[in-house]
Simulated assay, not measured.
Amino acid sequence: MMNNLFLIRPSKVLEREIWEYRQEYFDFGETQVNGSCGLAYHDNFDEWLNLVLSIEKDKLRNNVHTSTFFSIRKEDNKIIGSVKLHHLLTPDLENGAHIAYGIRPSERKKGYGKQQLLLVLDVARDMKIPKVMIACGKDNIASAKTALSCSGILTSEKIYEGAVHQHYWIDLRK
């Protein structure tokens, strides 16, 4: 499959596109924007952007640096998804995993989830992260299929906040 996406870090230049991306989730009745470092919970773009940039560089959340990206479709520069990568996994994050991702509702079921995950796995490899964990609700079939399509191995199921969550590991040393 040809990858027609690229990853970009959020910036002020993308404010209008990021807000449109966020709004689409709300328009589809969703209350969170997976992989966006809490975009749905912020009404002020600059505050959200400052948080995202500081968590990556110097301000730790849960004692971990986190990089946030948006996947952009090359042909029209449309934001297709969001993905965040925790640089390491701590006990506080064992239910949240290394990677969280989402695809905008109107672009789902088109193969973009796998493309986006493969791109962030390259980022993780460049950071010398040996393996990453992805967690998803057992009922989130699309996320599970995405993890499996990128060599994810289901290693456990745990109840977290009243729901069964599956944990997939991807070895990046191969």
Rank of each mutant, 00 (worst) to 15 (best):
M1Q: 13
M1F: 05
M2P: 01
N3H: 06
N4M: 02
L5Y: 13
F6V: 03
L7M: 02
S11R: 12
S11M: 06
V13N: 12
L14I: 01
E15S: 13
E15M: 15
I18Y: 05
I18D: 12
Q23S: 12
E24P: 01
Y25M: 01
F26L: 10
F26S: 00
F28V: 00
F28S: 13
T31H: 13
T31Y: 02
T31M: 05
Q32L: 06
N34T: 03
A40D: 03
Y41I: 03
N44Q: 15
F45P: 01
W48V: 07
W48D: 04
L49R: 05
N50E: 12
L53K: 11
S54Y: 13
K57G: 00
K57F: 09
K57P: 00
K57N: 04
N63M: 12
N63D: 14
T68E: 04
F69R: 04
F70N: 10
F70Q: 02
S71T: 13
R73V: 14
R73H: 15
D76S: 02
D76T: 11
N77H: 13
N77Y: 09
K78S: 08
I79C: 08
I80A: 03
S82Y: 12
S82L: 06
V83K: 05
L85N: 04
L85K: 08
L85I: 07
L85V: 07
H87D: 02
L88M: 08
L88D: 05
L88H: 15
L89M: 14
T90L: 07
E94F: 15
E94M: 10
N95K: 10
G96L: 03
A97R: 09
I99L: 11
A100G: 15
S106F: 10
K109P: 01
G111E: 09
G111Y: 08
G111H: 13
G111I: 14
Y112C: 04
G113C: 05
G113D: 05
K114Y: 10
L118H: 07
L119R: 03
L119I: 11
D122Y: 01
V123D: 01
A124R: 10
R125F: 05
D126T: 02
M127I: 02
K128S: 10
K128L: 12
I129H: 09
I129V: 11
P130H: 10
P130F: 07
P130R: 13
K131P: 01
V132S: 02
I134C: 05
K138D: 07
D139N: 09
I141W: 08
I141L: 15
A144T: 06
T146I: 14
A147Q: 07
S149Y: 09
S149L: 00
C150W: 03
S151Q: 09
S151D: 14
T155L: 07
I159G: 00
I159L: 06
E161T: 06
G162R: 11
V164D: 07
V164E: 07
V164I: 15
V164P: 00
H165S: 05
I170E: 09
I170Y: 13
L172C: 06
L172Y: 06
R173M: 13
K174N: 10
